[in-house]
Write a protein that binds this DNA or RNA. Structure first.
Length: 592
RNA sequence: GGUUCCGUAGCUCAGUUGGAUAGAGCAACAGCCUUCUAAGCUGUGGGUCGAGCGUUCGAACCGCUCCGGAAUCACCA
């Protein structure tokens, strides 16, 4: 039970005996603002109708009655705000609760199964900054849902087939001279991406030539020989032509090796990988079902549609005239299959907000087909990452490559450690591990601290910071505490598990209060699918602790009880920092 | 044009069922290392919460109108 709930319950009782029964929603509890004395505040305005007294008088009566509880030490009233202070013993006990709860901040299993789909890359080019946001969000949300007691299946639906990969394949055949990742030393996904670019270049040249010969530009786009070849290749792939199929497998293999490296560097993983080449035919049976239920209709050319004009949307195509399916058909099919096979209670799609319309339609169609579980589908719609000059554009070469960015972050972390002389007595392996952790921590925190649904800005010129509200700041706070704990251990001083009553300063109470908030924050983060809530919480905790660390001696404290309390409090802060950061997929070092 | 989302300090962002004098970081300036890690701490300046109207004891938050920006409305995925 949170402290807010505790006070709310007590207040409901007090108000009940003073003014008559009252529902819990009317008792508004909030944190006391820093400028006022007190821990929690009861807002009494909503109670005036029942008390028939002034705000001040009402607050005073309630405050007086609350002090009957031993947990509540004092109160003060400012306007309609009743500020309540708890006793020191109460706070010591809260800290003791945390110390003796090994699963603090994690709920026990609730029997729910949730699938989180994220990443879902195309296999024709390497990952970029946009994918980084997707991957970090997906992974973190999965961890947060797990901490809330859900069984989570992290899924990746790889878009491994289609015209885009044929373009890379064709360009490789034409211009590749048999280049492989092994022969050139290039990372596989980058190599395939280069041929995708090569295709585009050749295609544009052909269009230009055709236009120069007098052809209309639109027609030229269709008539360009290389495009026709790519389309022919896709037909061969669908017919399982052995040669095309083999090349497809080889080149996708290169891409997967490259992706694995990037995923590993980012520290994300998956429980289940789906390939679109296996799922793209799903959904056709749903089309038949929709037709027989008259939810869908067939046009003269044989194409199948769903009419959503009654819902303020357009008509949506589900099957082409030639009987082949489209994106929506597949997604209907995979959703159906997953809910059936995995017995899902919820399905979360981590997909950019450019696909809001798609998921709106997806859910609507499933509901029209009569599937109630459509309501259990959530589109976690996140905003784009933009550069100062706007969207990333591959044509203008402004795409921020994931591998490059990661390398740069790690290198910067390394340089900075070197400059500060932090890792002078570390082995090269330790130094490398810490640099990786800190560099990635900076990148991940930078992205995750922002509300997912908001468009965010990344300025490559002002590379990501390591000071202030950053991942390294939080990691540093953790490393600092671990350092104190190491030194304490050398002296034979250990943090306690059950603290006796001690005098607490206001700063110490503030820290315990923050620690007591943690489970609520984790629950809120899950409700809102927002790692940003965790990020901001951990920052606040770190900031508060750094200030405390500056003002209060720990090892130099002569009062043994106080020393143990401070050491224990510090250890708990370090523990919650590590917990919270792990929900973000960010590691914390023992030293840095 | 329809739909959805966004607009808070010079910049990047917090601020969640409506609560007190709207907060951080960066940048600028001034301080703090003989003492547990200065990737730190303390302080100063910086705001018409896009604009207006409404709802109410109380609005950055809820409603309406307008302004500005983004995404989307494909027989692409």
């Amino acid at each position: 039970m949170s402290i807010e709930q505790f006070l709310q319950e007590k207040t409901v009782g007090v108000v009940g005996s003073l003014y008559g029964p009252v529902s819990a929603e009317l008792i508004q509890i909030q944190k006391t603002r820093k400028d006022f004395e007190g821990d929690l505040t009861v807002v009494v305005f909503p109670l005036l109708k029942q008390s028939h007294k002034s705000p001040e008088a009402t607050a005073k009566e309630i405050g007086e009655a609350l002090t009957a509880f031993e947990e509540i030490r004092s109160y003060n009233v400012i306007k309609g705000f009743l500020n309540v202070s708890f006793s020191e013993q109460f706070w010591i006990e809260r800290l003791n609760d945390i110390l003796n709860d090994e699963t603090y901040g994690r709920k026990s299993p609730n029997g729910h199964t949730i699938m989180v789909e994220y990443s879902s890359p195309n296999t024709n080019k390497p990952l970029h900054l946009g994918h980084i946001r997707n991957n970090l969000l997906g992974y973190s949300v999965a961890r947060i849902l797990e901490a809330n007691g859900n069984r989570v299946i992290k899924a990746n639906l790889v878009n491994d087939r289609g015209i885009h990969i044929c373009k890379s394949m064709l360009a490789w055949l034409k211009f590749g001279n048999g280049e492989t990742p092994a022969s050139s030393g290039k990372k596989g996904d980058h190599l395939v991406g280069d041929y995708y670019v090569a295709f585009d270049k050749a295609y544009k040249a052909e269009i230009k030539k055709l236009v120069a010969e007098g052809m209309d530009e639109e027609q030229a786009k269709h008539e360009a020989p290389i495009m026709k070849e790519a389309q022919e290749m896709l037909r061969k792939w669908e017919a399982k032509d052995p040669e095309v199929y083999k090349l497809w497998q080889t080149m996708n293999g290169w891409v997967y090796e490259g992706f694995d490296t990037t995923y590993r560097a980012m520290g994300v993983s998956f429980d289940k990988i789906y390939y679109e080449s296996n799922t793209y035919l799903l959904g056709k049976s749903l089309v038949d079902e929709g037709l027989s239920k008259e939810v869908f209709f067939r046009k003269e050319d044989g194409s199948v549609w769903c009419d959503l004009t009654g819902d303020g949307l357009d008509q949506k195509l589900l099957l082409r005239g030639d009987g082949t399916s489209v994106y929506m058909t597949q997604d209907l099919g995979t959703a159906y299959t997953r809910f059936k096979e995995e017995h899902l209670d919820e399905m979360i799609y981590v997909v950019g907000n450019e696909q809001n319309y798609h998921f709106q339609v997806l859910k609507l169609i499933l509901k029209k087909l009569g599937y109630d579980w459509a309501d259990a589908i959530t589109h976690l719609s996140y905003g784009m990452v933009e550069l100062p000059e706007g969207k990333m554009k591959s044509r203008e070469g402004t795409v921020v490559d994931a591998d490059d960015l990661i390398d740069e972050m790690v290198r910067t972390a390394h340089d900075m450690s070197q400059e500060l002389g932090k890792l002078d007595d570390a082995t090269p392996e330790e130094a490398a591990a810490i640099s990786h952790m800190v560099g990635l921590g900076a990148l991940k925190y930078f992205i995750l601290k922002v509300d997912p649904r908001k468009t965010m800005l990344f300025d490559p010129r002002e590379s990501i910071d390591f000071n202030g509200n950053t991942g390294p700041f939080i990691q540093y706070t953790h490393a600092r505490i671990r350092s104190v704990l190491r030194k304490a251990a050398e002296k034979g001083i250990e943090p306690g598990k059950q603290l006796p009553a001690t005098e607490l300063s206001a700063d110490e109470v503030r820290l315990i209060k923050l620690l007591a908030d943690y489970p609520t924050i984790v629950a809120q983060a899950a409700e809102n699918f927002s790692p940003a809530l965790i990020a901001n919480y951990v920052y606040e905790l770190s900031k508060e602790y750094n200030s405390y660390y500056h003002d209060y001696p720990i090892l130099r404290e002569t009062d043994a009880a106080k020393q143990t309390m401070r050491l224990t409090l510090s250890e708990s802060v370090a523990r919650i920092i590590a917990e919270g950061m792990s929900l973000l997929g960010i590691g914390v070092p023992q030293r840095m």
